[in-house]
Structures are given as structure tokens and as C-alpha cells.
Design a protein around this nucleic acid. Sequence first.
DNA 1: TTCGTGTAAAGTGTATACACATTTATGAAT
DNA 2: ATTCATAAATGTGTATACACTTTACACGAA
Lengths: 250, 250
Amino acid sequence: MASLIDPTTAESGSGTRAGNRALSVMDRVREAILGGAVGAGERLNEVQLSKTLSVSRTPVRAALQALAGEGLLDYAPNRGFTVREFPLPAIVDAYDIRAALEGVAVRFVAERGLGPQEKEIIERALAAGDKLLERGSFEAGDLTIYRDINGDFHDGLLAAAQNRMLSEMIRICHHVPVSSSRNIVVFEYHDVRRRHDDHHRIFEAVVAREPWRAEMLMREHVASIKTSLVGYLSERRKDHPGEASTVTLA
Amino acid sequence: MASLIDPTTAESGSGTRAGNRALSVMDRVREAILGGAVGAGERLNEVQLSKTLSVSRTPVRAALQALAGEGLLDYAPNRGFTVREFPLPAIVDAYDIRAALEGVAVRFVAERGLGPQEKEIIERALAAGDKLLERGSFEAGDLTIYRDINGDFHDGLLAAAQNRMLSEMIRICHHVPVSSSRNIVVFEYHDVRRRHDDHHRIFEAVVAREPWRAEMLMREHVASIKTSLVGYLSERRKDHPGEASTVTLA
DNA sequence: TTCGTGTAAAGTGTATACACATTTATGAAT
DNA sequence: ATTCATAAATGTGTATACACTTTACACGAA
């Protein structure tokens, strides 16, 4: 792991989160893990980390414990923290779990109804997607833009569910290290079009107060990512047999 | 909160978990929270806790942070830890969430198949239930026995799913403070009979490798607890309007 | 009385020293 | 050479001191 993050970025006096070095350490270490800088199974040395980040062991330990709570690290007494391993099957399963959870979330929203400003946020995301897609094809960077729109839609719905447990569990699903390095989906325009259409239908079902239809649509919507993923992976494996599986996200 | 736990039980030298006071502190505090000894929203004072438990603040902080990771505590920078509030709607929702998660778990098992000794554990739980129920009625304590059998069945299936994320999320659902104090279900013999019958069907679906049927049955099985719960609560509210809602578990 | 300000008290955040466990290295006996 | 015991070194666990933030309280002005 060596440098984790170059200490020059440390800006000694002012951590990113004021008044709490532990939290900023947490962000940096998480970043390092999700970015693949530390590698699964690797052990995190407290003194080394504290030297690298120019803080004492205390906030480092706090950060590591918090990250263990997020499920990113494992802890063993008298042996410290290690980066949790996420074998490919577990990563794939995480999509099924997220599908189930987001399904429950939209069901809740459809059951309880959507507040006016919650509704507006989601409608804005839908409109933004409509606008982006109306051109009929994608240019460079459009996919990244849609990624944000997609996030807004899902986050908006999740916020509307007003359930902390659900939010946190789904957040954990999102934090699964999607393979070793950072990578953007390879979705065609067609795929995004379909996914955006899903969004519209889900929203309609919610507004129409059809809880189970909304849940079913959302489940299928999220689970389909898994399908694309395994398809992409098995294809890629044929082409480049030995290559480490670099993976998509959505 | 006053005493949390009487310090006489502290047995200074040997914590319950050897070599790690933080873990034993964690257990005690969790126990205190789940047992209702500390009350929702209440703030946990680190120095007071450390004095009560005869340890320094360091392991106390570690324990609190870990419990925050479990979702039992809230943390605010420079303001410490408070017992998380679980309003009744959140408790009820937790059953829906657990239903969805356990549904996914059995689907996984049904998809992947059940190992021989996993199968035996579950069959043993089923047989134990059969034996307990064959008498045709319940005596005192039988319900508690069935509670364990029920736990074995669900735990066995969950273990067979071999998915850590699922296990931890379901564990969190179980750790929701079921109202303020500890309490046992008021299930009739008839209800337990039905629930045990559900178990048999779920097991059959798993063995027959029918993933979606298994999932559906499990979802309904767990969600029905919620239904009983709200029914029980609304009835009890009629009888004893002012009373604090003491709640069931399963 | 009410509001605002300043100061004291209480409580959390961090650094550091040391105790203890684990791991690795060393060396002697087989 | 291999194996086991033992000791050094590496690393985590805990206690404690102090810095900083928040909170509570008292005092004075409007």
C-alpha cells in the first residue's frame, strides 16, 4: 500500500471536515480502499497510517472502526483491521440485495405517498434524462452525466421513503468495492434509454399509488444491472482470459 | 440511566471476552440499550460510562463507535453518542425489510442448493417443531422453546445462503429495540402451527430448487409477523389507551 | 422580566506513553 | 537440515493528560 495518499495533500491545519480528524481520515481511507489503492485482504497498520496522514493513532483507530461498521474492513482482536475481501459472487449478490431493498423503498413511497417537493426533485431528474436522451444518441461524457441523473432519481426516491435503516443498507450496497479499480459502465444509448424508461414507469406507479407494481418494477430495474454485469464479465473473460476482471458500475 | 449495570458484576480482572475490554464494554452497553435500561434519545457520557465500567475512556469510545456501526447509536461530532430513536413506524418497517432480505436469502439457497449438513440442521429444527406441536396444544414455556426452534430454522437457512452482507443486515433488523422492554410474543397454538407449516413449505421449495417460490413464501412468512404485530398493537391500544406500547417479538 | 454576553463547567477530540499480544527472527538440540 | 524453544521486534490495547468545543450559568443592560 505504500503511500495510500500522498501526504502533500494533507493540508495539515484544516482537514476536509472541520473539527474532526477522524472523519477526514475515514474519508481518505475509504477513498483509498474504493479506489483500489490498498487491495483486498491487506492489513492496515495503524502507526504507518498515522504517520502517512500526520495524525496520531487515536483518530486513525476511530476511522478504522467506523469503516468496519460500514462493512469495508474486518476486525480481529489483537490483530487489527484488514480490508474486507469481496469475491465476485458477493459483488454480484449485492445487486440482488440492493434490488430487494430499493424495491421495498419504492413500495413504502407508493404506500405513503410522495410529498410535493420530493415529487419535484424526482420529476426534475426525469426531465433532465428526457432532455439528455432526446438527441437520440450519446456523445462523450453524456454517460457520466446520466450517471448523476440516475443517482438523483434513486436518491430522491430513497429519501422519500424516509427510512434510515433502508438508506444505510442501500448505501452499504453502493459502497461495495466494484472490483479493484474505478470504472464506468459500458452502456449503449439503447440501454440507457430503456433504463430511463424504467424510471418513468416506476415514478408513474408511485404516483398512481400502486405499491407492489412499483416494487416489482424497481426490483427488476436494479436486478437488470446484475444481468448486464455478469454478461459483460463472461464476455470479457472470453476475450481476455487471464485479465483481472475490471467491472462496471451503476 | 444512572447505573446502566451494577459495577459489582464488572469482575475487574477478567472481562467476558478475554483480551479486549472494548468488546466486553460493547456487549454490556448493547445489553443495556436492548434491555431498555438507557432509553431512546439519551446521551451516553463517556467519562461516566468509563467510571461505571471501571475502564478508561479509550475502550468505551471504541465500543460506542462499534455500536454506532451496528446502528444502535447515533454520533454527532463534538457531541458524542446518543441512543438511536426507533419510532414505532420504523420498527414495523424493519419487519418488511427483514422479510425482503430473508426472502433473498432463501432464494439464493434454492438457487445454489443446500449442503448435506446444512440440510440436516434445518431438518432437525423442523423435526423439533413437529414434535413440539404434535401434542395439539401449548403448555407454559412451550412458546419459548418454539422461539428457539424458529431461530434455528431461520439461522440455518441464512447460514446456508453464505452471504455475509445479508447476514449482517438481517442481524441489524433483529437488533431493533422492540419497544422499551423485553417481551415475548402472544401467539396462540394455532398461529405457531401455521408458522411452522410455513417453515415446511419453505424448506420444500428450497429442496425442490424453486427459488422464487421459496422467496415469496419466506417474504410472506416474515411479513405476517408485522401484520400480527400491528394488529396486536392497535387492539391493545383500544384496551389500554394510555399505556406505553409493549410489543411482541418473533 | 427578558435578552444577550461572557465566563465557568462539563464533555468530547487528540496525542502520547506504556502494557500486552502477536509475529518474526535467532539459535540450540535432535 | 529440521524442529522447537526462546527472545527480539513489531503492532495492537489501554490509560492518561491536555486541547478544544459545547453547554450551562450567572450577570448586567435594555
